[in-house]
Design a protein around this nucleic acid. Sequence first.
DNA 1: CTCATTGTTGACAGCTCGGTCAGCAATCTG
DNA 2: CAGATTGCTGACCGAGCTGTCAACAATGAG
Lengths: 139, 139
Amino acid sequence: MFSVTSQYALRALAYLATQQPDAMVGGQELSRQTGIPKNYLSKILLALGNAGIVEAVRGNAGGYRLARAPNEVPLIRVVELFERHVAKRACLLGLRRVCSDEDPCMAHNSWRPAKLAYFDFLETTTLLDISSAGKLTAP
Amino acid sequence: MFSVTSQYALRALAYLATQQPDAMVGGQELSRQTGIPKNYLSKILLALGNAGIVEAVRGNAGGYRLARAPNEVPLIRVVELFERHVAKRACLLGLRRVCSDEDPCMAHNSWRPAKLAYFDFLETTTLLDISSAGKLTAP
DNA sequence: CTCATTGTTGACAGCTCGGTCAGCAATCTG
DNA sequence: CAGATTGCTGACCGAGCTGTCAACAATGAG
């Protein structure tokens, strides 16, 4: 459903959301706990930092932490950074740039209920929801 | 949402579904009508042929046609040929191979309604549904 | 049979994504 | 200041996806 990069981002953020607020987590520890390659994780966190979702501190005892409370970050704010089809609300068949009720493509009406459920999930679910529901259990 | 290849497959099949049953459509015409590159389309149709979704006839006056009635082909039979996450019913966060109600991942309960709507759409929508709802209007 | 037409096959090129690595920059400790 | 620690940056690589091309195989028309 989502690219590996989006999955990594959500997993890292879900882990950060389980920490005490303002507690710094080093990239090394975050990598170990989530099973995400350390150097690749650092690039993902950079993008999340530019988007204002995490804060990074360099130097000794530095690391990462959430820039906002977990319940203030809906998943779509994360995923749209890495998934073009989410940012563009793309049509199912790729026929039009935007596919609206007023200007539908062939598959629009069939696709509509699932599309609504999909974007409703992304907009109403927050980091708090996916971080408080169990353990991370990296693969 | 889907890869370009899946979108191409659905568009080509939707066009074939609008034709008279048993009518052959040449690859050249199919390519023109759908806006799909001719040579790439032929590879997609080969996969659809191996899956028993289309029939191909070579030689003069050959072409392609659906192997079954449009209402007998749910979209998931098409998409699962090209999308790994559909074939595997993959979990949202990529944490487990299978993510079930009995053995959920962190995001499972939040993701559940949207996931059900998504697979319900793929399993109940057929080529007839997406071919009878309007014109193809290639990009 | 001969030829044109059409689908099949295999090789290849360009691009993006996932991932690695080395060096640079900032920050804290002593 | 000196050194260690940590994040940042840029280069690079391999795999898979999208797309192109040329040669091959089958089929029907003449």
